[in-house]
Write a protein that binds this DNA or RNA. Structure first.
Lengths: 205, 205
DNA sequence: AATTCTACAAACCGACGAGTCGGTCAATAC
DNA sequence: GTATTGACCGACTCGTCGGTTTGTAGAATT
């Protein structure tokens, strides 16, 4: 059983640094050797654990990306306070990690979609699955907000979800290299304006 | 003078197909040979006209990208009707070309920024210049809207501009592969909601 | 008519990248 | 104590890619 632990540990290490480098340099622009150099491991080790670079990346998606999206973009909005407050807090936190140049997974997702779109349908499918999970969750959160009286019942939940996701992914692109902190602040203000505009004007008391 | 015309024609052909392929497959994932194959030209022709692949790309930015952004995202909002109407029409048109899978340059920009970020500062500078032009223009259009009484004078022009640009670039990412037409419609509806919320409530008559 | 220059063609180079394969070595099984 | 297996090493293959060099048909110049 001990070996299985070692196996898992090595695979985990590879995946973590793999995601880091793929995020920084892109998938096609990061060689397997780049990853291995960082870990003092050899080609043999890599291809002992993974079938191919593509297989490796898919396992990264399943093991790391999905979970991070859950913990950063899904679970935080599933609390029971006011819907718009939850959403504001969630994306404020997500953008804060972005300001500090850490991996925020909305951007990671957007980048990878840009990179694989039209080039690798297999990987695109996995990435789209994550987007769909994110979207479904946001839609249901907004619908819950409508039921609970926080959000105007005339609001289009799918539209609102799409708009939030879009603007979030977009602002991440605009935050690279130009005043990330100021742009975060401006963005959050406008997101609040938008969310205010779909709040229920006759709140349930 | 005739030779200069031929020279320009060949360079133009290279740049146009270059941009197309870079857009479809990414810069690093498109080889110079890929472009030349499409045009029945040889390496010699390419390196006769351009110093390097990077120089080639920078010329594409200056000659094609900048102009397209002007004609698609800047000039359309510089008319003299109602500001929000102009903005709506402009981004509706831009997303329509996106639906038809043609090159829309907001997405092109976003993709390239993702690809070059942290890897090629020189090219990043050129791309950021375009973003800045786009942003400055949007901000001034919104400020004009405030002066002319279409837009609430309390609105934060920089914030609104950023929010529009962000959401536009983001929705483009989400339009690839999943219901582009439906998402365009939903997005435009929400953009209208947002723009309504910053319209001047006591319009000048 | 001879020469020079333009606009390419074609072969080639060195570096790099994914994937392979024979070998190693420690741990475990018997 | 020997056989087996899991985890890994590192050299090698083969294709690709950015860039170079040499050559040359035809236009322009003299």
């Amino acid at each position: 059983m001990q070996k299985n632990i070692k196996r898992m540990a090595t695979m985990q290490r590879m995946q973590v640094t793999g995601l880091e480098l793929f995020y920084k340099n892109g998938f096609y622009n990061t060689s397997v050797d780049d990853i291995l150099k960082e870990l003092d491991l050899s080609k043999g080790a890599f291809y002992y654990h993974f079938d191919s670079k593509e297989d490796f990346f898919i396992q990264i998606i399943e093991n790391l990306l999905v979970r991070k999206v859950y913990s950063m973009l899904i679970e935080p909005v599933e609390g029971h306070s006011n819907t718009t407050d939850l959403i504001m807090k969630c994306y404020d936190d997500a953008l804060e990690t972005a300001v500090h140049n850490e991996m925020d997974f909305g951007f990671v997702l957007g980048n990878f979609i840009g990179e694989f779109n039209g080039r690798n349908p297999k990987i695109m499918k996995h990435l789209n699955d994550i987007i769909r999970i994110w979207e479904v969750n946001l839609v249901s959160v907004i619908q819950r907000g409508k039921f609970e009286g926080h959000i105007d019942r005339h609001a289009d939940a799918e539209g609102v979800a799409l708009f939030i996701m879009s603007s979030f992914m977009g602002v991440r692109t605009l935050m690279v290299e130009t005043a990330p902190s100021a742009r975060k602040y401006r963005f959050m203000s406008q997101l609040r304006v938008f969310l205010k505009s779909i709040e229920n004007k006759q709140p349930v008391l």
